[in-house]
Amino acid sequence: MLTINKLNFSYGDMQVLWNIDLAVHEGEIVTVVGANGSGKSTTLKNISRLVAPQSGNIDFQGENINSLESHQVVERGLVQVPEGRKIFPEMTVLENLRMGSFIKSARPTREANVERVFTMFPRLKERQKQLGGTMSGGEQQMLAIARGLMTNPKLLLLDEPSLGLSPLFVKIIFEIIQEINKQGVTILLVEQNVFQSLKISDRAYVLETGRIVLSGTGSELLSNDHVKKAFLGM
């Protein structure tokens, strides 16, 4: 579904991604784990075309998306829920959700999708008139995921959805990710919460200082000595 081939990227003179090879197949949950600054978010920014890759190819459903603009990537069904939620602060919960169905292909399913995400996140329904900027971190994360779902994504990119959340919210978010996947949305997850994310992943990649150093199924990596030592403190 998504194939990344020899992706290189630099911020100015500093190269942050080195020959990244990565694939996501339809129906999977794939995770990229790695420490702070290892290049996880930058990889997602390249996929969403918020930045332009230096070299390498990004293909989505057989189409090269290197030369597309971000909004065109979204129209293809490749949607990112960004790190730090990035909720529209001066818009209500409902307005935020409706912005999620701005693209033409998502407009006809707008009302049905609002109902769908309200069932998934009852708390958002209760707070639908509240301004996005006034919600708690966990609620904003729910809203960010719900807003992403409003676009009818085929592949959902999730950047650090559990960052800064209380253990209860972390548990809810990981359950929700699995539920979304069961409903037919392929997931590419980027996480620092290595244990939780590997547990729910079909496959995973380990990113270190901009290079992929390991890959395998979630359970393989959970029992890998390097992963245990570097991320799980075992």
Partner: peptide, 18 residues
């Protein structure tokens, strides 16, 4: 609303297909 969204968070607006 898309204009407002762009004003409030340009990057998030791009990620919503605006």
């Amino acid at each position: 609303q898309a204009i407002r969204a762009t004003a409030q968070d340009r990057e998030a607006a791009q990620l919503m297909g605006i």
